[in-house]
Amino acid sequence: MIENVIIGQYVARDSILHRLDPRTKLMAIAIFMLLVFFLHSYISYVIVTCLVLGCLACSKIPPSFFIKGLLPILFILSFTFVYHLFLTKGENLIFQFGYLHIYMEGIVEGCRVLLKIVLLVLMTSLLTLTTKPLDIAYGLETIMRPLKKLHVPVEQFALMLSIALRFIPTIIQELDRIIDAQRSRGVQFDHKSKVKRITNYIPVIIPLLLTSIQRAENLSLAIDARAYRDGRDRTRFKRLKFKSLDYWTLSILLLVLLSLLFLKVGGEVL
C-alpha cells in the first residue's frame, strides 16, 4: 500500500528540470500561474501549451505519471467543462434540446477553462515529480526567509514541514499494520453496509492517533535532546545555489510573460 500513495511523488531522473534550483521552480510556478491568468488569444494558448509540453518532454518522466496525476481530478474537469458548455450564452447556436442550448462559444469556453486547469495541474505535478519534497520545503523556507524579520517562525515552519514529510511513509506503514491487526480480529473492511464500512475504520483511526500522539511526544524530546532551540542561534547548511541555468529559465519565463502581457494589453491583434 505504501508506494501507492502519491504524495510528494518524486521521480529520480537526470534532466534539466531536476537540476533546477527548487526556488527557481517555485518562482517559475508563480510566474506560470500569472501566465495562465493572462491567457487570452489563441496564439497565447498555443505558446503556453507548447511551453508546458516542452517542459514535460525535458523532464524525462514517462507520460503515464502525468496522466496518473490528472485522473483524480477527472470529475472536476468534466464538471467544469459541462458547466461552461451549457451555461455560456453566445450567438452561434449549434444544438438545442428543450431547455438545453449549446453554443459554439460554450464549447470554446469549456475547452479554454479545461486547458487552463490541465496546464496548471501538469506544471505543479511537474514540480513535485522533479523536486524532492525536502527541497521544496527548503526552497519555500529560503524564499520566505525575509519574513523572519516580521517574526514569522519560518525555521520552525520548515522543520514542521520536513517532519510531516518524513513521517508520511511511517504513518502509512503503521496504518497498514493496524488494518491487518484489526482484520485478523474479525473486522471486515469490505462490509456490505456503507455505514458499517465507515464505522469499521474507528478501530483503525483511534490506535493510529494514539501512536501518533505518543510518537509526537517522543519526537519532541528527541528534537530537544539534539540541542534544537526553536530555530535560534543555528547555522544553516547551504544546499541551494543559483546557477546560470536558473537565471536563464527565469529570464525566459519572464520574457514570455511580458510578451503575452503586451499582446493582451496591446489589444487582440492575434
Binding site: 493496524i178 491487526a181 480480529r185 474479525g186 473486522v187 471486515q188 474507528i202 478501530p203 490506535p207
Partner: peptide, 26 residues
C-alpha cells in the same frame, strides 16, 4: 489467531472488557 509485533498498538477501546469484546462482536 495472530498476535502481531507490538500488539498493544492495536488497542483502542475505553475499557479492557470492551477491547476483549471487539473480536467476538465482529
Amino acid at each position: 489467531g495472530l498476535v502481531f509485533q507490538y500488539p498493544e498498538h492495536q488497542l483502542f477501546e475505553t475499557t479492557v472488557l470492551k477491547e476483549l469484546a471487539f473480536g467476538p462482536r465482529n
